[in-house]
Simulated scan of single mutants.
Amino acid sequence: MERREFLAAAGAVGAGATAGCAGLFGTEENTEESGGEPALVEDRPDAVYYPTHREGMKMAGMGMAGDLSVGLMYSYAHRFWTMEAGGTNRVDIREEDDVHLMVTLWDADTETVLPVDSGVGLRVERDGEIVSTKSPWTMLSQNMGFHYGDNYALDGDGTYTVTVNPGSITAGLLGGYEGKFEDPGTAEIEFEYAQATRDTIPFETFEDQQGTEGALDLMPMDNMPVSTVPPRADLPGTVVGEGTSGDADFLATVIEEPAFADAPAYFAASPRTPYNDIPLPTMGLSATIERDGEAVYDGSLDAALHPDLGYHYGAAVDGVQSGDAVTITVDTVPRMARHEGYETAFLQMPPVEFTAN
């Protein structure tokens, strides 16, 4: 989508938070009388699982921050988990929380959701008065995939202005992304908020599926892409192996004589969630490639973005041959906050080992 077309689409959404999710499920409203969030399943698997419920979203508006397209959504305030040194930490809804604000950033040309590793700044104002300057968490959700979000207390019904300040993209920019996103600037989005409107957002509970392994489908939004990486069949190069670790799927591909790297070959590891192929940024990965008992590569895999590979971890290598022993080591598990259904996965992640095809 060209910038002019994107801005026209954003204008169609407008400042009023009335544009919702495409193809939404039919559900009841989540009013205070309906009881809020259901109780968590006690015996949850150490894997991706169906949550107790699903919430819809309202589109507040869209804008541009340099080369980055910006979407702002909101839903009910809800629990989530942050990553701490000893594991996960549950964040419960505070009495004053009104909404869960969510930000998605993407490249309009390739319709690819982009992670900003240094985080996103957010300023919420009403009538020129600052309501909040709390920065949202880097998050993973079964509804939205990769995004930035947190629970926020607002100042009643009215017109709000949200200034989104994307941080820098520290991942390597390869191919068509080289030279882009260097000066993102800020996006200013104005929207009308009313609690009565918020309470019409669909809310669905899952009595039979909750707590069982699996995942909800990603929820498409009008004029905004969902955060996925290419499936196996669409990865460039030659897929030389795959495996799982901590319930994450790993695909490894090798691109010979890459135009974007000064090397004979480029090795890319693409970790993603099961079921929906959502990328897993904020990891630390390294790899060893052995041939006839000798290491032909032993080093880090750096986070990178490429229009055809999406978000991945890669390194320039001399090549990978059939029969090579490949080990991908997870040095750091994903440090993203997680919505319900992901908080028990991607925590204990042993090495992924395979023999190259």
Rank of each mutant, 00 (worst) to 15 (best):
P271F: 04
P230S: 00
G241L: 08
A248Q: 13
A252R: 01
D247M: 07
V254D: 09
Y266G: 02
R291W: 01
A233I: 11
V239F: 08
A233W: 01
P264T: 00
R291L: 03
T288C: 00
T238K: 11
S270A: 11
I289S: 02
A263R: 07
G246V: 06
D277G: 00
E256F: 00
F260C: 06
I278G: 04
E294D: 15
L235I: 07
Y266E: 12
A263K: 09
P230I: 02
T244V: 09
P264C: 03
G241S: 08
G241N: 07
A287S: 15
A287H: 08
E242C: 02
T282R: 12
P274W: 04
T253L: 08
G293R: 08
E290N: 14
A233N: 08
A263D: 10
V240F: 08
D249S: 09
R232K: 14
R291G: 03
L285I: 04
S286A: 14
A259N: 05
A265W: 08
S270F: 00
E257M: 08
V239N: 11
Y266N: 10
T288V: 10
D249T: 15
G284Y: 01
P231K: 00
T273L: 10
A269V: 15
E242Y: 01
A252K: 02
V239I: 06
E290I: 00
T288G: 01
E242N: 13
I255H: 05
I289C: 02
D234I: 00
P264Y: 10
T244E: 15
E242Q: 15
G243I: 12
A248V: 06
P258F: 02
G241A: 09
R232T: 08
L235N: 10
P279W: 02
P230Q: 02
P281A: 03
L235M: 13
S270Q: 13
T244C: 04
F250V: 15
E257N: 14
G293L: 04
A252C: 15
V239R: 12
E290L: 01
P264F: 07
F267H: 05
V240I: 15
G237E: 07
L251M: 11
F260Y: 14
P258V: 00
A295E: 12
T253I: 12
G243T: 13
P236S: 05
F267G: 13
F250H: 07
L235D: 07
N276E: 15
S245A: 15
P281N: 03
T244W: 01
A268L: 05
A259W: 10
T238M: 07
G241T: 01
P231I: 00
P258E: 06
Y266V: 04
P274C: 04
R291E: 03
E242F: 00
S245G: 10
